[in-house]
Design a protein around this nucleic acid. Structure first.
Ligand SMILES: [Mn+2]
Ligand SMILES: [Mn+2]
Ligand SMILES: [Zn+2]
Ligand SMILES: [Zn+2]
Lengths: 144, 144
DNA sequence: TTCTCAAAGGATAATTATTATCCTTTAAAA
DNA sequence: TTTTAAAGGATAATAATTATCCTTTGAGAA
């Protein structure tokens, strides 16, 4: 993603363009597996050694509030972040911290249709997220 | 749930029966809305004022490991617990900390059928959990 | 019933991700 | 260039959870 594209996204939301924000947005786009704040902090340290960890958290929050990124919660006591904000689900590996994206419009339609028919009393559904939990088989996953 | 029933559940799993475990299990069954460790701690304090908070965490972990209860994760930095271990989903209220259970075998069958047909490459699905996010309407929810 | 001891609990300190504070710096508009 | 509200840096505080370490106890054995 180019500098111009990131600048565009920030100004579009009325956010100040700063080197910190540029670096953090670039990092979360580049890092796979839904990085933590620390992953991001570490990554940007190479080129921007003096961005403080507090700033990383603050910027990630601002991004999430402005729908530039998304927060992804896990079993563990650590938040993870996702550069993809369009509707999708997550595949959780039950024996590693791997989290993969899962896009499936057929499934989304199926669920939408289902919950249009079967209403939950007094409840307005805004969003449905699936956590698909299981194991990758025959892969090159890092062994501890 | 009677004392005998709880004792039965514990011995069945080979767990020592202690007053602390009895009280904590009873509390989590009785408390609704998927209590936190602190909710449970507070509740049992009435009858058992000297069960320490560390014990509550330890016992809840032991229970979860032995499938007597389940952990429920949330957006917030706090774990919640669920006395119901059979397969079900959760309804999250988007403007309060309410979490309701959602049982729906028709939906479970639908999903099972769907993922039997549409396989995820190199992945064995073990469990699928839905987070149904939205708002309760026209209810007596506590207003802040 | 008493004895034994691994398992469990209590008190308290430590951990750790995250947030708050507060002063300094800076992006961007005038 | 000047202005200033917003943003960043350094550091302390918070809060849920976990670890430590000594004491107590449940439950089987004798
Ligand atoms: Mn935390
Ligand atoms: Mn925590
Ligand atoms: Zn994702
Ligand atoms: Zn539940």
């Amino acid at each position: 993603m180019s500098t111009e594209e990131i600048t565009g996204k920030l100004t579009e939301k009325g956010l100040k363009v700063t080197p910190q924000r540029m670096a953090i947005y670039e990092a979360i786009v580049k890092l796979k597996n839904h990085p933590t704040a620390e992953n991001i902090s570490e990554y940007i340290r190479k080129n921007h050694p003096n961005i403080s960890v507090g700033t990383v958290y603050k910027v990630l929050d601002v991004f999430a509030e402005n729908r530039l990124i998304q927060k992804v919660k896990t079993e563990k006591d650590v938040m993870r972040y996702d550069a993809i904000v369009e509707n999708h689900h997550h595949i959780y590996c039950s024996d590693s911290d791997r989290i993969e994206d899962y896009f499936d419009n057929e499934l989304n339609d199926l669920l939408e249709t289902y919950f249009k028919k079967k209403k939950i009393p007094d409840f307005k559904v805004e969003d449905i997220k699936l956590q698909i939990i299981g194991k990758y088989i025959q892969n090159n996953e890092t062994l501890t």
